[in-house]
Amino acid sequence: MTSNDTLVKVENLKMYFPVTAGVLRKKVGDVKAVDGVNFEVKKGETLGLVGESGCGKTTTGRCILRLYEITEGKILFEGQDLAKMKQSELRSMRKDMQLIFQDPYASLDPRMTAGGIIGEPMKVHNLVKGGKEYQDQVDALFKLVQLEPYMAERFPHEFSGGQRQRLGIARALATRPKLIICDEPVSALDVSIQTQIITLLIRLREEFNLTYVFIAHDLSVVRHISDRVAVMYLGRVVEITDSDELYDHPLHPYTQALLSAVPIPDPAVDRQRKRILLTGDVPSPMRPPPGCTFHPRCHMATDACRESKPEGRDVGHGHWVACHRV
């Protein structure tokens, strides 16, 4: 069931990467990077995807764009299943979905000029006619992300980290996409530059009615920009709800621990807060623990958690959580 205002719907998405060993590259197991994820993103909405490193948030983002051949599941973009499409069909869809990468140093071709980088998507998708229109569009994109059009002649290494991230954003906007996957767009940047980029992303969202999937590990940043947030742990979504609800009434013990670990930059407030310190590390996604994958680190775990996987359920007002103890 997909209503009209849904842009993306992900159903039972699984992405396993094979692990091989020996000279014959025999398959010895799977890294279950994403293991049965469901969610939907409405038009004009920003969905935050949070979790620790290795929880599968980046893989999920890339699966939505079908940058990987997914193992199982459906990705419905405006009702069409991307997972079943041929490469040629996908190509024309791709202009509607773009990606902003984490590392602005690695995601810009060092041998292309800034103008060339931003203009290329328009050429690839035949969005402009003639040199004049192309040049006008490139100039407009530069201004949109608060860079000067004369910088188009420069190469990526002549820009600072924050400016490069602006280039990455301009490139993503070049095809007038409907959906942008922002994969940790600010985590490589300094605090003052982070704020500039977040403010820019929010402004652009309003100006072009964009839909974002905002992937990040910094919960305070995610809360600031997202309408709804999905918390991931070891390849699964453990809780989804709207931002305010998640931060005011987190239900899953993992969400609670994650939130309590985020420091508040005010000693008077921070010293008053109760902390749930998680013990241990995230288990290997090659050998996830049985039952609820979070149980070895959970302070509320019971026998049921060790034996069976909790099914997700809606506890009201679109607050979805997968935990036996809720």
Binding site: S160, G162, Q163, D190, V191, S192, I193, Q194, T195, Q196, I198, T199, L219, S220, V221, R223, H224, S243, D244, Y247, L259, V262, I264, P265, D266, V269
Partner: peptide, 25 residues
């Protein structure tokens, strides 16, 4: 003041306007 005001905080309203330090170091 800018550094403190520019970080989103969990204990503040979500849509609070952040203090932006313009330019680059």
């Amino acid at each position: 003041i800018g550094l403190i005001g520019s970080v989103p905080r969990l204990d503040m309203p979500r849509k609070r306007k952040l203090y932006v330090i313009d330019g680059l170091p």
